[in-house]
């Protein structure tokens, strides 16, 4: 089994019981996770992949994703980040002062708004190092939730990386280590993470997907993903199924 498959399957579990999941552009693993979760729901889960003409519920232009989110019609969304801190703040803009003289990333996209409105935002970044996971982001594109603010629906529910899975506790405004992927250890995660987080007494290994899930991933999900991510699926196939 490959890391991409473990991450896709792990993210799909986080989407359980969602009615409508939206995935942004340039996100093959989150898109795969949404398609897998839809397959596991027997097709009842709705999925909108940005950039797809087929796997989308939207027919009202680019604004519909945001209108939908503000109305509570989107249950989950994925968000990456150039910097992510321990309070769940996300920087997609850059460093070195505005507009990003040291490092300039593309910009905030819709993160500001979606993070506020979508209840289950899964932070996803495959790389895991202290350059990304910092004590405090330099620019807040999307703000972590204030535990006291009961009017805000949206915010992070989990952080998934190539090394580990964290859950987010809104009241404590802190991440907690939920599981570590096979081949990695708690100390390695700590060394690569620049912010403090809670560590339960016992941290399990991230469960590997069973054969039924692997079959779905290599069959139905890959076929559906190919239309939007031909290069990604080609790479998966090119590496074989070992």
């Amino acid at each position: 089994m490959r890391l991409a498959e473990l991450l896709t399957a792990t993210a799909a579990i986080l989407l359980e019981d969602c009615r409508h999941v939206a995935v942004g552009a340039r996100s093959p693993i989150p898109a795969g996770a949404a398609l897998l979760a839809r397959a596991l729901s027997g097709g009842s889960m709705r999925v909108s992949l940005l950039g797809s003409l087929r796997d989308t519920m939207f027919a009202n232009g680019g604004v519909e994703l945001f209108d939908c989110a503000a109305q509570g019609r989107i249950d989950a969304f994925f968000l990456g980040g150039g910097e992510i801190d321990g309070q769940g703040n996300v920087n997609l803009l850059g460093t070195g002062g505005h507009p990003g003289k040291t490092v300039r990333w593309p910009g905030c996209f819709g993160s500001t708004y979606l993070y506020h409105h979508v209840p289950r935002v899964i932070l996803f970044r495959e790389e895991h190092d202290r350059r990304i996971f910092v004590p405090r982001v330099e620019f807040v594109s999307a703000a972590g939730p204030d535990g006291m603010d009961k009017t805000r629906r949206g915010g992070p529910s989990a952080l998934l990386t190539g090394m580990a899975l964290f859950s987010f506790n809104r009241e404590r405004r802190r991440f907690s280590l939920a599981s570590v992927h096979e081949g990695h250890g708690e100390k390695e995660v700590a060394a690569a993470t620049g912010f403090d987080y809670d560590i339960p007494a016992s941290v399990p290994t991230t469960p590997a997907p069973d054969t039924a899930i692997i079959d779905l991933l290599r069959g139905k999900v890959r076929d559906e993903l190919r239309a939007l991510y031909p290069r990604f699926t080609e790479k998966l196939e090119g590496c074989g199924n070992a």
Binding site: G62, F66, H98, P99, G107, T112, Y113, H116, S141, A143
Partner: peptide, 29 residues
């Protein structure tokens, strides 16, 4: 710099002949 719904909202305000469009969810950024 902006966020997607803010640009949509600015254009929608112009589309409706309004001076501005309000949005929720941007205050903490």
């Amino acid at each position: 710099d902006a966020t997607c719904p803010a640009i949509h909202a600015g254009l929608q305000a112009a589309q409706k002949g309004l001076p501005f469009m309000p949005l929720t969810g941007l205050l903490e950024s």
